[in-house]
Each structure stands twice: as C-alpha cells, then as structure tokens.
Design a binder for these strands. Structure first.
Lengths: 222, 222
DNA sequence: ATGGATCCACCTATGGATCCCT
DNA sequence: AGGGATCCATAGGTGGATCCAT
C-alpha cells in the first residue's frame, strides 16, 4: 500500500477528487485497514486515513504534509448543514526560542500558507464508518485573512515572549486562538516565567476558530 | 513488590548486603520476575534488577538513583579474577548549553559524588542467571581521583564547547572517556558546528575506564 | 584490552484531532 | 457553541549497560 507522494498540486487534486463522496469505511477497505467504530478513542484516525490515501510524507515532522509541493492537509469535520463542527488544530505553541520570532518565520504562517481542506461528515447520527468525504478545497489565505491571522498571532506571541503565558486567553484572537493541547489537564511542558526562569505549564496549541473555517468553505459559493 | 526507598546510607548498605552471594536468578525469583537467559538483548537487565531490589526511585530521571540520600548505583561486571570487565557508562554528553558549564556543576561530578558499586560476575562461562552479586562498596572519589576526573572532563568539554566534537577521541582521558551512546552508528542527535550552526552527530556518553574502576575495587584490599 | 557499535524498556513529545460540560 | 479536557500512535530521547572485531 505504498501510495506515491503527489509531485504537483494537480496530481494532489486529482487524487483527492477520488475521495469525494466515499465513506470512511470504503476508503479504509481500499487501503486494507480496519476502521474503528467510533472516534472516542481514535480521534486522529480520519486524518491519518486521508494522509495515507493521498501519499502524505511528513506525518511525523513539523513540516507540511506534502513536503514536495508545500501543502498542508486538514480534515474539516462538518455538521449536517455543511458547516465546520470543530475548531482546527494548527500546531503546538512553542514556549522556548520565542524571542526574535516573526509571523513570517512562524510555523503557523508556514502551515497555513497552502492548505488542502478536506470536509468530512461528522454528524453524530451517522455511524462513523458511514461518513462521507466531501469535495476538497486547495486554499491560501487572502491578504485580508492573512492580516487578521498575523495580528492574532502577534498579540498572542507578545504575551508569550514576555513570559505572560497565563494572560493568554482562549477568547483572544478573531481567527486564531490558543487552547490546551495535552494528554490531560495535569500535563506539563517546558516554559518560562516572566523573569525568564524555566518552569512548567500546560502545553497549548494554536487552533483556527470554526467561524473562520466556515468562511473558508463558504467562499466557494461566492 | 513495592520496596521502600532507603532513607539513610546505612539502610542502603544493609539492603545491598542481602544481595552479596545471591545469584541473579535467585534475586529475580524473590521479586517474582522472569530473568532473561542472557544479556545480548537485555544489556541493562541486571542494573534494573538491582535498582528494584534496592528501592531506587529515579530510574527515569537525570538524578541519583537514590534521590533522598544522593547515591548513584552502578553495577560493575567483574571477570573471574574479580576485575572490572567493561567500562562504566556515566551519563550522556550534552551538546547544547555547554558554555558556562563547570566541573562542579556538571552531571558527571554529581553522579560520581557518591556511588554504590555493586560487583556482579560476568564471566561468560557462567550462565547468566547463575552469576552472583558481590559485596558492594559505597564510594566517593578521593581528592586525587577527583582531580584527574576534573582534568579529563575539562579537556573534553573544552573541545566540545568550541564545537570541535570531532576532535574528541575515545583515547582521550585517563579515567573518563567519550564513546558512542546510541542505538547504532547511524543515530543522530542535536549538536553544533564550531561556528555555532546547529547540526547533527552521533550521540556520545561519558564512560569510566575499567582501569579506573579496577583501582576503586582494589582499594578495598589496602 | 580498547573503542566502535549496539540492544531493550520506558517515558515523553508531537502530529493526528474530537470529546464534552456548562 | 465556546473553550477546557482529553485520546491514540508513533518516533525519539534517556537510562540501564554489554557486545564484539581487531
């Protein structure tokens, strides 16, 4: 089951077109994989299934999923109205080496520069393996979107780089927010106090609000 | 099988005294563990068995095995003449944050400040589970030993901190040497070039030469 | 006997995200 | 429906050291 990495965006789009309308169970069968019956203990399974089907190469790296062509894959769970049901995880909030960083050099910027959004039904009334993939969208932020993302990122990182992690709220940011990203609320990762003293705190990640991803999807209807 | 951590050196010595003369198989049976038949695929098993028997608490940490009393446990494989058969691993050679470090603040210094040396037969003609523990020695370096260790450490770290890791030879050092510490020769860890550029190289560790540990053991006969 | 090469267990960090309470 | 909490798989690092060719 060695699916080659797509060499061009066109190849990727052709491949992802084969997913549209297929159920998770069907795709799993094509790859000779056993799908779990639900997501409670397998939250990342859909994303990894899609990665395999599309020939993603960087599953373990801090790099775009499709390294050759610089494209990041994001599955987007949508409700019965076709709207995003959840926020979208982007990457981990790094708490060391934050000084001197800029939006342009940030991981968030790199990951969001070119994204293949792949809708997947997530209505709880549909059994997991019966849920269908939708039509994917290859996207880059408009200049307006990028301006807001940059502003959100800078407001968050201003607090983080001065050691005021505790002051960063999940309510902050129009498109981008910070939320916990950990095994549980007791998890601890490396961080620094406002005095620069190393300490530990709950690991967090950058997430895109569902109101934002909704606007990305609906743009197709314009 | 929860063996309490020793609260004093005296408690530790009493407990380790119970090991003297016992075979690995016997000790494993006391702990209700199944001993492997050899060490080829279980190189660290003896050390971990001893840790469990003695109530060590820091198996996963960069700290002395017996945190309460600041004692490090080292099993010492000895040949049929009672002499150390192998060099002794001390700790990993850290390749970042090397500037500004001193012998006094080093991990090597801390780990060797107080060591419980536990001899174990390693003659290949004795089946693994039949090998016996010997009489342990609770040791601290003499001022002469510490002076040589410090000198060895400083010569090594002078090269490392200037990015000349490649110039560090295993032949260097009277008591302390640098040798590979990795899954295999292809392993890569973080390091820095002499210009301070991050790169990767084979992970290495500090080891005590067997000529040195031999002198530690024979001191008991003086 | 030396020094380059290697082996396992266990723990943690990261990438994939959704769960679920209020 | 927002945000705090959580879940799995897998890779990689660390601590325990010995193997083995020359």
């Amino acid at each position: 089951m060695a699916i080659p990495a797509p060499a061009t965006e066109q190849e990727l789009l052709e491949r992802v077109g084969l997913l549209a309308g297929k159920t998770i169970g069907r795709v799993a069968a094509e790859l000779e994989l056993a799908a779990p019956s639900d997501q409670k203990r397998n939250k990342g399974w859909t994303g990894q299934l899609a990665e395999m089907y599309l020939g993603a190469t960087a599953s373990t790296l801090s790099e775009p999923d499709f390294q050759l062509i610089g494209v990041e894959l994001k599955t987007l769970p949508v409700n019965s109205q076709g709207n995003p049901a959840e926020s979208t995880y982007v990457c981990t909030l790094t708490l060391d080496q934050t000084t001197g960083s800029s939006w342009e050099s940030s991981v968030v910027h790199k990951k969001l520069a070119r994204v293949l959004w792949l809708p997947i039904e997530s209505d709880q009334t549909i059994p997991y393996t019966h849920r269908r993939f939708g039509t994917a969208i290859l996207w880059s932020p408009t200049s307006e979107q990028e301006a807001v993302l940059k502003n959100d990122w800078e407001e968050i990182m201003e607090l983080v780089s001065t050691g005021n992690l505790d002051k960063v709220s999940s309510s902050q940011g129009r498109y981008l927010q910070i939320r916990p990203k950990a095994a549980n609320a007791a998890s601890l990762g490396k961080s620094y106090s406002s005095e620069g003293i190393p300490n530990q705190s709950l690991p967090r990640g950058f997430y895109l609000r569902s109101t934002f991803t909704r606007s990305v999807l609906s743009k197709m209807g314009d």
